[in-house]
């Protein structure tokens, strides 16, 4: 059975409306927050600006790392959550279907219109996004640039492969890593993330 993303979107939209008395949103095994994309974009791109020059590569690596660790822990929580068991699991037939479940949750979270373009088990994952909030934010506030700017999605793409084919949780984080060869922030028609086994 194919994954019905709309069911997942619906569950997130309904679940994120449930507020407990402390103002915390517990959903899919994590605590969720809803913040303006401008907050995340300012944080990432100004962090990068501060490390401009010699430390530019460090900024990029740190932002991808923060997202990959998060994606790894988050989606591990998500795939073990009650909601996943109820809503997503019944739609999953193969291990590879999990990725479709992960991308549907990402879409529901407002991260962009993620589509899996290619998945070679253990080897390669290609995810395409035509409207990433990072690329859109970069274009709106900083203009066109020369390199991919979607550090959050890049880390998350690596984490998806870590969870499927890396060492057992929690030892598999960074077994895979992703590049972003195409990004709307550098004039490409879409962003594309390619995750492969890490080279080290």
């Amino acid at each position: 059975m194919a994954i019905d993303g709309s069911k997942i979107v619906h569950a997130v939209m309904e679940g994120s409306r449930i507020r407990e008395s402390k103002g915390i949103i517990p959903l899919f095994g994590v605590y969720l927050s809803i913040a303006s994309v401008q907050y995340y974009n300012t944080l990432s791109f100004e962090f990068e600006n501060k490390l401009r020059g010699e430390r530019a590569a460090e900024a990029e690596a740190l932002l991808v790392k923060a997202a990959q660790e998060c994606g790894y822990a988050t989606f591990q929580g998500i795939r073990n959550s009650w909601e996943w068991g109820e809503i997503v699991k019944p739609m999953i037939e193969t291990k590879e279907d999990q990725i479709e479940g992960f991308t549907a949750v990402s879409v529901a979270f407002g991260w962009g219109d993620l589509v899996v373009k290619e998945l070679i088990p253990h080897e390669k994952l290609v995810i395409r996004v035509t409207d990433s909030y990072e690329a859109r934010g970069h274009l709106e506030h900083y203009g066109m640039t020369e390199s991919g700017k979607c550090y959050m999605l890049r880390g998350v793409a690596g984490a998806f492969m870590d969870l499927l084919y890396g060492d057992d949780y929690p030892d598999g984080c960074f077994d895979y890593s992703a590049q972003e060869p195409f990004c709307r922030a550098k004039g490409d028609p879409y962003c594309e993330f390619v995750a492969r086994k890490s080279s080290d």
Binding site: V12, V30, I34, V37, A66, A67, C70, A73, T74, G110
Partner: peptide, 14 residues
Amino acid sequence: LPVAMHCHHYNINL
């Protein structure tokens, strides 16, 4: 206003 949902892992990692 455009928003994104993120969990505590990401917010605290950042």
